[in-house]
Amino acid sequence: MLKELRPAIVMIVLFTVLTGLAYPLAMTGIAQALFPRQANGSLIEKGGKVIGSELIGQNFEKPGYFHGRPSATTDTDPKDPTKTIAAPYNAANSAGSNAGPTSKALMERVQGDVEKLKAENPGAPIPVDLVTTSASGLDPDISPAAALFQVPRVAKERGLPQQRLRELVAAQTEGRFLGVIGEPSVNVLRLNMALDALAGR
């Protein structure tokens, strides 16, 4: 019996070492050597302090800032551990709402967002990413159209010319990867950092 078990035990140990230790360590080492910033979370610093990551959105609510996509992430209610509360961009709980097109709560939330955006920029078409959440709830980017839609509100709050903010959005827009993969996008945190720098000048 030991004769039959020995090869199985040897293979388990061998593949545990190869796939559980050697491969992850090799990939981590290669990533750290070739892409250290990305391997360490694509962190964004300001004044020597980490203020966020390019990969995880933040909840900007003040009218003088560009806002990201709605986020459906939740957290435990501190008053009642058996319940959850909305916690936008909670990186410890990445998830979509899983609400379908017949969900009353989803329809009410979207309709409320649409009405708010219509009041903010009357007559302009509302980009879909300003009223829909991403699958992860952590999307750090918006479309250029979503950023441009917010220009009148931000310009009014900051006392800046709209044309200057449109130029800022254009400067912060990232094109398609290799010119063909994906869609143009704007990282909301980087855009707001550029906005603060512009307002400071």
Rank of each mutant, 00 (worst) to 15 (best):
I44H: 04
I44G: 06
E45P: 03
E45S: 07
E45N: 06
K46C: 07
G47P: 03
G48F: 01
K49A: 12
K49T: 12
V50C: 08
V50M: 12
V50S: 08
V50E: 11
I51V: 04
I51C: 08
I51M: 03
G52Q: 06
G52P: 01
S53L: 00
L55C: 00
L55K: 07
L55Q: 09
I56F: 07
I56K: 03
G57N: 03
N59Q: 14
N59Y: 14
N59I: 12
F60Q: 03
E61Q: 15
E61M: 15
E61G: 13
E61P: 12
P63M: 07
G64F: 11
Y65F: 13
Y65V: 07
H67S: 10
H67D: 08
G68P: 03
G68Y: 05
R69V: 12
S71T: 11
S71I: 15
A72I: 00
T73L: 06
T73Y: 09
T74A: 12
T74H: 07
T74F: 10
T74V: 13
D75I: 11
D75Q: 11
D75M: 09
T76M: 15
T76N: 12
D77C: 08
D77R: 04
P78V: 05
P78N: 04
K79F: 15
D80F: 00
P81F: 01
P81Y: 03
T82S: 02
T82H: 13
T84Y: 01
I85L: 09
I85T: 06
A86M: 07
A86S: 08
A86N: 09
A86D: 08
A87H: 13
A87C: 15
A87P: 09
Y89A: 03
Y89G: 02
N90D: 06
A91Y: 11
A92V: 06
N93Y: 05
S94F: 06
S94A: 15
A95N: 13
G96D: 01
G96A: 02
G96H: 06
S97N: 07
N98H: 14
N98S: 13
A99R: 14
A99G: 05
A99C: 09
